[in-house]
Structures are given as C-alpha cells and as structure tokens.
Write a protein that binds this DNA or RNA. Structure first.
Lengths: 336, 336
DNA sequence: CTGTTAGCGCCTTCAC
DNA sequence: GTGAAGGCGCTAACAG
C-alpha cells in the first residue's frame, strides 16, 4: 500500500479514453463538456479513487481555495482558540484550511526565521496566510497575509489585535472602584507584546487614580502557573500586603489562587483576584475568576475575513483591526 | 504586495550567478558544493527571502518531511487533543505538520467522500497522513495512513483506538463495588464506535455482576449537555430511580449534574455520577467528576509514531494499537 | 466539444 | 564542482 503512487490525472484520462485536458475540465467544471463524457470521466474518477494533487494544482493555477494558518505550536491554547475562529470563518467563505506548524529543528540552520520560512513555503499552496506569532517582526511574502497579535509598532502588514491595555485598565478601574488601593501585579512574558500592554494598563490605572506605583507590588512573571504561585507568596509575605492581585493571565491567576489558599486565606474574602484571558477553567474555579475576555476566536474570525478580502483584491478598511476586550465579573473580587 | 510572485529558485540562481541545480544542491545539502559557492548562494537566499515552494518540492521529490493530520473540524475538542499529541511527536521526529480541514461545502457534489478527497490531496504534499474520523470507512490511498479511533471492524489500515469498552467496564466495576445496583446510563452518539463500545461496557458490567439490564435505566443520548440533562430528568422521575448514573461522556454528565441539582439532590450524597473523557472541566466541577481518561493526546502521539514507522518502511508490530483507558476517581461517587 | 502544447518551480540524472 | 535537460501532475492557452 505504501509504495504505489496515487492515480494521476493521466491514469483517469487513459482509463476513460479521453485526454488529460478533458479530465481537467470536468474536475474544474470548465467550459462545456459533453454530458456523456462528463459522466464517464466522473465514473472513472470514482472508480480509481482519484483526487487531484493539491501540490500540482497549486503550482499551476494561482488559486487553491485553501487558506493557511501558521502557528508556532498547535498545542498552545491561544493558537487553538484562534483556530476555532478561523475554522468558523472558512466555513462561511467556503475555503479549506491548512494549519501549519514546524516541529522541525533543523531549521535553526536556516538563515531566515521559521515563520518566514513557513510563510513562504505556503505561498504556493495557499491563497493567503494568517500568522499567529506574538513575536512577529517583518514578514517577507508577496501574498496576502494577516497577522494575529503581532507587535503593532512593527506591523507593516494587516493585523488584528486585542486591546490588551484597555482591558487591563478596565480591571484596574474595577478594582479601584471596589475600594482597593494596594493592588499587586503578576507580570507576563516580557517578550510578548500582550504582556507589555497589560502592564501598561496596570500602570495607567494606577496613574489615573493618582496612586503611586510601588515596585514591591509588582512581581515578574511569564504567564505560568508557577510564577503566579511564587509571585503571590512574595506579595502575601509583604509587611503591608496587597488587598487585590491582578495577574497578567488566568494561568498565573490560578497559581495565585493556590498560594492564597495555602496561606490560609480566602478569595475574595481576604484577597480579591483578577486574571486575564477568560480561559474555560476561569468559570469553574471555586467562586469563579473575574477576568478579561479578549475573544481570541473572534480575532481568528476577523483575521480570516480580512484575508479573504485581501485575496479577492478588495481594500481593507483598516490595516489594524482591534478586537475590544471585555471585563468578565465573577466572584473573585470584593469591595473593601 | 499581493500581486508580485514569490522569488523562485531561478531568481536565486540568477542573482547568485550560478545555475538552478547548484542552488538546489545547497538547498538540500547535496553533493559537494564549493564552500564559497555555498556561502554566496546562502547569502542570496537570505537576501531575497527565498524559500522553496512546498508544492513544487513535494511534486518532484517524494519526500516533503511534512506529516498531515486530517480532521473533520479543528474546533472539536477531540481533534484538538489529538493535535496536541501529534504536535509533540513531530518535534521528536523532526517533521513539520499540516492540519487539514475542509470548510468547503461544494465538495458535496464530489463523488468521493470528503475524507478521502482530502486524504488524496495531501498525498503529494505530505509523506503520510493521520485521519481523525470516528466514522471512517475505507480509505483509498497508496500512501502511509494511520487512523485515530475508526470503526475497528472495517479497519483495513493501521489505527489507534482507546479501550472504550474496558474503560466503561471499569466504571461499572467501580460503581458496583461501591454497592450500587441500580445504575442509569446516558448513551452517546450511536453513529460513533466509541459510544457503542461504552454501552457494551455498561452491559458487560451489569452481566458480570449478575444484574439484569433494565430498559428504563437506559436513556438515549448524543454526547451533548442537553441529552444528559433530559435523560437525567427522566431517570430521576422513575418510581424506583437509580442510585448512580453513568454518562457516556463528560459533557452529558455535566447535564446530568445540573438536572440533579435542580431536583434538589446532591452529588454524590443522593446520586453518584460518572462521566467519560476526563475533559479539563471534569476536575473543576464542584466535588470533581469521576470519569475515564482515554488519553486522546497519547492516541495522537502513538499514531504519529506508527505513521513515521510506516513512512520509513518499517513494519508495524500491530495494525491496531490500543491505548488503555484509566478510571479517574474524584468526588462524584459514594458508597451506599 | 475535445486534443495538443506549453510551461508552473523544483529535483535528478547525465554530461562536462 | 557545476550546468543542461527532462519530467513530476496539473491547468491554460490554442488549435482542430
């Protein structure tokens, strides 16, 4: 089974007793083909289990009806969310989808960066590409491309981003409105734009309320459970501990939660807690984690819409589409 | 940006002042190329942002170093789990991954089924394919293919499955060991092999304990929250209601949970509840849902291993690999 | 209506 | 060590 090659268009032509172009025509519903010829060819196609090679087709005609989605890691939850949104959109637009990810480490020898490499590869198989790469710099491709959540300042290509700063600001306004004055912060990965923007929102919130920024209330982090756990331990052991903690993402908020429990305290009674992302778990954890939804799936959906527009040669309203974030209030905060 | 075509191997050759074959050689580290030539070509490649077209490469040489994963829907949680496992495996084996899904509805006109169509398409771009299709019948491809969770009886190709029946049996043994004698069952989608096997496990468990199978304790279902909810309502309104309910998957177990709550009862005090799948939510819901883990990600991982073996021309130990399921005991059951 | 003829971008002999 | 030619499977002109 593994050695024999798939049937080609030529096999079909031979068996059906016609030429390859005729087969090609019925495959693409081109021109007029005699009904009986059409029928016979279809029959042979089915009989042989023939399907045209995407590779060959894509090479010849600049249209494959396939969209590409390049992600650094398909296991990553952010990527998965984006995929869901894209998945929904392609159904509407009647495209197929290829999600590409490189597990290939040999590529490090490659002079150009992975994303670029992959992007170019797919230039011939897909009609356009969506890249999910929070560390994106510049992309070098002559085909339609839309980025999800890149560094906006360097964005020379269409992109869709979430309003991370504004979301974080909303959190701060909420907490401050609840009477909190000492608000701890667990940071995110500093190489990610999203984390920087959330931190900016934290600072802006403080500033806006005329509160001073206290270094001891700010713990570095990296979006992991552990960093939330450790950061919270430090914050709680302060001589004057915070009454609320804002973690840069839900994952680290869960870590905070555990540290709080282990310290014999309760959320929200002794400590208010807010996360960011609105992961599914956030709804389940004890009283429910108050967090910010950034509608990642919608980012994927919008990115797809933009891409399809690009492919069809339409102009984009804007090169940068911002998906508004939304504060999701659950039970993890309390007025003091 | 969208009209100009990507640089080709010929562009590189021209700029570097060499022939295309030389460029091809450095691309594939073939033969001996003069170090200075090699260097210069590499430089031009980088300068032009060139990357060889997957399409063209795949067509010419029967090796792309890319694995394919065909799923009915990338939004589906089962598919996502499989993806995670595959994703891990490709890193180990140094392959790239393409996940393919069709949003294309025109295909309904196509005489061959969607899976087959996609599978064949990718035959030329990928070195092998993993298909996730619980309704799989026969696949028609001359290239390596491994199926995840197909109908075993029709499997003419290598496949990896979970031991659904045994997992369900373990649930029954557990419940019966806890003293339960009247155990309700919420069924799954009858078009899915997994659901049938789980039901079989339920029946076998009953039989093994010399308990009779009572029709009134068996509710049809379809793996949804709603069916669990409705089924549980019926079971609870029985004149002699069950003391435990075994739902064919976690999702419907959650529905059961809600129905139980609404009836003013509590889990596990008045009713023991078991699910199947061990979804992330299962750990969070109130006391924790006792369920069965089928290690879907591992299925993806193993499928990848099998596929790589196939691609490399090795023989498989077995054409059918069974991933053992495991009962995860949490707080939703209680002895009576 | 259908067959013939060119390539698409790349890799693989085979010469030099 | 390098270049030239042929062809992978397919589609898009042209001819008939």
């Amino acid at each position: 089974m593994s050695q024999k090659s798939n049937p080609t268009i030529r096999d079909v032509a031979r068996v059906a007793g016609v030429s390859v172009s005729t087969v090609s025509r019925v495959l693409n519903d081109k021109d007029d083909v005699a009904p009986e010829t059409y029928e016979k060819v279809q029959q042979v196609i089915e009989q042989l289990g023939y399907a045209s090679s995407l590779a060959a087709k894509g090479m010849r005609s600049r249209r494959t009806n396939v969209l590409g989605l390049v992600v650094p890691d398909v296991g990553d939850s952010f990527s998965v969310q984006v995929m869901k949104g894209v998945n929904q959109a392609i159904k509407k637009f009647d495209y197929d989808l290829i999600v590409y990810t490189g597990g290939n480490s040999r590529m490090s020898r490659w002079p150009v960066r992975e994303q670029q490499y992959v992007s170019l590869l797919n230039g011939s198989i897909t009609d356009g590409i969506i890249v999910v790469t929070p560390r994106a710099t510049n992309f070098f491709t002559h085909y339609p491309l839309v980025a999800v959540d890149p560094h906006p300042e360097e964005a020379e290509f269409p992109a869709v981003i979430a309003t991370n700063r504004i979301g974080a600001l909303a959190v701060m306004e909420y907490l401050i409105g609840l009477g909190h004055r000492r608000i701890g912060f667990i940071g995110g990965r500093t190489d990610l734009q999203s984390a920087l923007r959330r931190f900016q929102g934290y600072k802006d919130g403080l500033c806006q309320a005329n509160l001073s920024l206290e270094q001891e209330l700010i713990q570095p982090g990296n979006y992991t459970y552990e960093c939330g756990y450790l950061g919270a331990q430090k914050l709680l052991s302060l001589s004057n501990p915070p009454t609320a903690i804002f973690a840069a993402n839900d994952q680290s908020a869960f870590g905070v939660f555990r540290a709080v429990q282990e310290a014999g305290l309760r959320v929200p009674d002794e400590l208010s807690l807010v996360g960011f992302d609105n992961t599914p778990e956030a709804a389940y954890i004890s009283v429910g984690l108050t967090t910010v939804d950034q509608f990642i799936d919608q980012m994927g959906y919008v990115a797809t819409e933009m891409l399809v527009n690009l492919i069809q040669g339409n102009c984009l309203d804007s090169n940068l589409y911002k998906i508004p974030t939304q504060l999701i209030v659950r039970g993890s905060c309390r007025a003091i």
